[in-house]
């Protein structure tokens, strides 16, 4: 039996799709069988970030409405044979599917895969409810900005109300230099307010944009710091203990964070 993880945020543009692509690819690199599900119907993106946009024949709505079999709609990644993408429909809207259908779909996928990673649309409407319907676990992505953290707080409340307890946090786009000079919220500030467990931190990194341009997730680039952060996050997902990435390169930051949250390090 596989596990379905939904990547959500409330606020748009904070890095959900980037996170889904990188975690999915990284888990597949580790040998797990993974299906990425793009639940952002009408605004499909995950295919482009994965570099698979030219291979789409069928999509999630076709599967749910019975126009094709699930197997036919899954696109196999060209780099990893245990990695698949179920693309969103681009011409329909989120009312084309309902939460029960997504739940059934995830259950079907869990039978033959280790991880189902669902990329959730922004917002708290039906698209959000569809995306979380089949998930066993939620990951909340936010950036160190007041509006993004506020929306994350709202999402956490909604997740808990829908029985998705103990969501995990990814803090994306941290700029350690700005944190150091007192111009950016740091991980401690955010965790203190949201009061949820931290899954990882990802630095602001140009290689994310380069990777997206190429359709090659950053985890494939050994020189990408964001890629390294996502590889660490994926190892934590499978249960390994991995220390937080060292954004200041002097150790004290990690030490502080570890002390603060009682995180064990491997």
């Amino acid at each position: 039996m596989g596990e379905a993880l939904v990547i959500t945020s409330g606020k748009g543009g904070v890095g959900k799709t980037t996170t889904a692509a990188n975690i999915g690819t990284s888990l597949a690199m580790m040998g797990y069988r993974v299906v990425l599900v793009d639940a952002d119907i009408g605004l499909r993106n995950l295919d482009v970030v994965m570099g698979l946009e030219n291979r789409i024949v069928y999509d999630l709505v076709d599967v749910v409405q019975g126009r094709c079999r699930l197997r036919q709609a899954l696109i196999r990644d060209r780099r990893f044979e245990s990695l698949f993408l179920l693309p969103a429909a681009q011409t329909k809207d989120k009312t084309a599917v309902n939460p029960e259908q997504v739940r059934d779909l995830c259950q079907e996928l869990e039978k033959e895969n280790d991880y189902i990673i669902v990329d959730c649309p922004a917002g708290i409407e039906q698209g959000f409810r569809n995306a979380i319907a089949g998930a066993n676990k939620a990951i909340v992505v936010t950036t160190p900005e007041v509006a993004a953290v506020r929306d994350a707080d709202r999402i956490i409340g909604l997740l808990e109300a829908s029985e998705l307890r103990n969501p995990l946090l990814i803090l994306n786009r941290i700029r350690s230099r700005m944190v150091k000079r007192g111009d950016m919220l740091d991980v401690e500030d955010v965790i203190e307010h949201l009061a949820i467990d931290l899954l990882g931190i990802v630095p602001e990194d140009e290689t994310i944009i380069i990777s997206t341009n190429r359709g090659e997730p950053a985890v494939l680039n050994v020189n990408s710091r964001a890629g390294a952060a996502y590889r660490n996050i994926s190892r934590r997902i499978v249960g390994e203990e991995v220390p937080l990435i060292d954004l200041e390169a002097n150790g004290s930051f990690v030490q502080r964070v570890k002390r603060l949250f009682g995180l064990r390090t491997g």
Binding site: V146, R150, V179, G182, D183, M184, L185, D189
Partner: peptide, 14 residues
């Protein structure tokens, strides 16, 4: 610092 301001505003808004 703007970080301090952000933190305080975040506290109130939440």
């Amino acid at each position: 610092t703007s970080k301090y301001l952000a933190k305080e505003r975040l506290r109130l808004v939440l």
